[in-house]
Nucleic acid binder design. Structure first.
Lengths: 216, 216
DNA sequence: CACGCTATCTATAACCC
DNA sequence: TGGGTTATAGATAGCGT
């Protein structure tokens, strides 16, 4: 109704520098508004994305404001499980928390160690199998005489024993290294004077079984 | 430069309902964007108003994000130290403490589960080895002809494969049961018409290798 | 996942009660 | 400190890359 005036009621929002607001009054107002806005955003994030959120604000004046979804304690607790407080505030409770935390963390770490040990042992077993006498080719297998077969069998039994020991293995925290599943190699090398009397072979070789024949 | 098209590139921002975003993909994207926005706002508030701020966020996936001015610990510590609580029983401290304990317990339980799974797998490997063709006696080994040896070798290779699969085994939380390391038994039974032409044996038996010969 | 884009939607600076 | 108004600065949903 009124004739338009050259002067607007408000200049609207203006850009502001990102530094501490000097004017204490303006700062207080901004704090109130932005704090409300921040809480709203935090709420929205937790609702829209199902996230857990903890937000704690202290005004310059020392007043505390907080928001938490589902609540501040659980989120903060969860957080400090991963990032233990370097320097717990000097409250008995905080110290208690820290102590408890550390103790439990140690337990967890131990479990992790156990898992790692098991994994490692699994890997070793696999390696053992990779390098085992199973690798013998048809060709070579066909050339074995009865005594060589017996030796092979002995080796296999030793291997089995070693693998079994590996499986039942050393205690997790043991200092000594796990037994080498392939220390089967320690078995005396196949002798030259093997008795070939009772076995025919398709082709007879001049040399006996080489030391590395079985990939031991 | 290009002439304007009737179709807009984007419909721009649209209002959304304030509830958990159903589409997981969209939810993740929104989470990333809003999380960044929230951190920015928190930073601005701390700068503009000189406030102390602590912000902790956990995504649904369990990843943690945090911001703190001057740092998360001091703000959280200050917050939980505020009320000197005469009766620790029902205070925020207690809830905080309980929350931490529960979190750690969950972590431990999970680790224990992993360890149990590993142990179980170890037992299975052992059992597999117990029942393996290694059990062949000298006597029986001496009676094998070349073709039977080949079969034995095949079985061994299958066994090795199965053990390897067992070692590399399924994920701890996998629903499907671990593969049977001894499904070697699925190998067709040894045939009667094995070719004995090229092998001499100390004693020749009328019957071929029985099905249960190798304890499969 | 992080970036870019664009058209909105939202938060909020400045001012007033 | 809390509400309201206005005009504008910022944030971001939807869609590509």
């Amino acid at each position: 109704m009124a004739p338009p005036q050259g002067r607007k009621k408000s200049q609207g929002r203006r850009k502001i520098e990102m530094k501490l607001i000097a004017d204490e009054n303006a700062r207080t107002v901004t704090f109130s508004k932005r704090r409300a806005g921040l809480f709203k955003k935090a709420t929205e994030l937790s609702i829209l994305c199902g996230a857990q959120v903890a937000l704690i604000i202290f005004s310059i004046g020392g007043r505390a404001y907080s928001f938490g979804h589902p609540n501040v304690e659980s989120v903060v607790g969860r957080f400090f499980n991963r990032n233990p407080m370097p320097n717990p505030q000097d409250s008995v409770h905080m110290r208690f928390h820290a102590a408890m935390l550390q103790q439990l963390k140690e337990q967890c770490d131990q479990k992790v160690e156990e898992v790692e040990a098991k994994k490692k042992r699994g890997k070793e077993i696999e390696t053992a199998l990779e390098n085992s006498p199973y690798q013998i080719s048809d060709e070579r297998l066909s050339m074995l005489d009865i005594n060589q077969l017996k030796r092979l069998k002995d080796m296999m039994e030793k291997l089995r024993e070693n693998v079994r020991r590996l499986v039942n293995g050393p205690t997790v925290n043991s200092v000594e290294p796990p037994p080498n599943p392939m220390n089967v190699a320690a078995v005396p090398p196949i002798q030259k004077d093997v008795d070939l009397a009772n076995v025919e072979r398709e082709k007879r070789e001049a040399s006996p079984i080489p030391a590395d024949w079985l990939k031991l």
